[in-house]
Design a protein around this nucleic acid. Structure first.
Lengths: 219, 219
DNA sequence: TTAAAATTTTAGACAAATCTAAAAATAAAT
DNA sequence: ATTTATTTTTAGATTTGTCTAAAATTTTAA
């Protein structure tokens, strides 16, 4: 068995490993989890002892098969609970993260399987992130950041890269949510800001920073 | 803020205080939580420091107003989650306890209020125990153990005193569940065992130990 | 009412997760 | 290719929750 803290480390290493090809460094983990590097080193030794990560002194770490499976299980729980909170309990999508961070550590296979059935076996969470199935498999979304799309592209929003409250809230306000379809009307060549048309005649101004944190797929 | 462990101690002290008038003794708490008396003493000091219990060396402890409020909050969460597990996720009533023990520590007022609304503001959990409202108030059930009822009494089951899996499962098997109405046909004067009639012609034999763990109200 | 039994507390230890400060190893730069 | 900077690890402490063994207190009973 693993503690909540250890589960959070695994989730963190999983996340960093998908971003950088070179596994996760001690410092990167420390920054992400807001802990000291020394603390991370201590924990890495414990996780290595449990065969959950591959660890060599002074090198970046990676998840073992066992660790990867556990990380995906936590992510599955987290995303299913987010669906529950938004669909069933009517939370707004920017209110679910902290609660889901707690709920993801509840340990009961039956709970998660029954919750999954109740929710109708959903494939994506409210932020557009894919939900791993019970074997750890999930849909490959092949999304690109909006900032990489071109003028005239017909797009559909699939998710976000930035999960902060303020960002999600901002998207709420401008009505740009996952699954929303829109077209790029203009891109300002000076600062890469863009104008998008969500519905006929409803255009919206998007800064390049915002665009780089919105995921879309081409239609 | 209180830790999960501390919340479990409060719940335990609450439970023991409703059973014995004289508060909860160190040994009784130790037995209930399966810990050593020395461990309990250590924890009692910490809870007293937080003004959650009234503690004097070598005396039984009781909850302060603040501690009582917190205990009722945990009990509210626990029982609401039990309703959710049985009504929404189709758990059997003897499968919910361990999971609810974990869920009760999730800390989010919005979560509990929205869950309560979703469930339709239920007044009793699946075992017949009353659910405190957000101010800690709950319905007074005025139940008595079946063992204190008399021949000929028309009764309705309201709950149980013993929550072990094996006991709940046994009740399942003999089809004696909360809200079930029945009549006492016979009481054996030698061992206090009884025969009850659930439906016309459907009589059931109940040992005095079982009877003392079933709560009923007279109709 | 004093001796025996039971209960409760203290003292000292340990594992988990964290920290600071200092040392060691690696990476970067002149 | 050394020196400097950065990263990582070690060493030593702290807090929380737990334990055992022994001491202190209270309760029970002869």
């Amino acid at each position: 068995m693993s503690t909540q803290t250890q589960e959070n480390y695994l989730k963190c290493i999983y996340k960093l490993s998908t971003q950088n090809i070179e596994g996760a460094s001690t410092n990167a983990i420390a920054k992400e989890l807001q802990a000291r590097a020394a603390t991370v080193t201590d924990m890495l030794k414990k996780l290595a002892e449990k065969k959950l990560i591959n660890y060599t002194k002074y090198k970046s770490v990676s998840l073992t098969v066992k660790g990867n499976k556990l990380a995906l299980e936590i992510i599955r729980r987290h995303r299913l609970w987010e669906v529950f909170l938004v669909n069933t309990l009517h939370f707004k999508w920017d209110e679910v993260h902290e609660v889901a961070e707690q709920l993801e550590h509840i340990n009961s296979e039956k709970l998660i399987e029954n919750l999954n059935n109740f929710l109708g076996n959903p494939k994506f969470d409210p932020h557009g992130d894919p939900i791993p199935d019970k074997h750890g498999k999930m849909i490959d979304t092949r999304s690109i950041p909006l900032s990489e799309a071109k003028i005239g592209d017909k797009l559909q929003m699939t998710g976000v890269l930035e999960h902060s409250n303020s960002f999600l809230n901002y998207l709420n306000e401008i009505n740009l949510l996952p699954n929303q379809k829109f077209t790029i009307k203009k891109i300002n060549p000076f600062d890469q800001s863009m104008q998008i048309e969500i519905l006929k005649g409803n255009t919206q101004f998007i800064s390049s920073l915002t665009a780089s944190n919105i995921l879309v797929k081409c239609l």
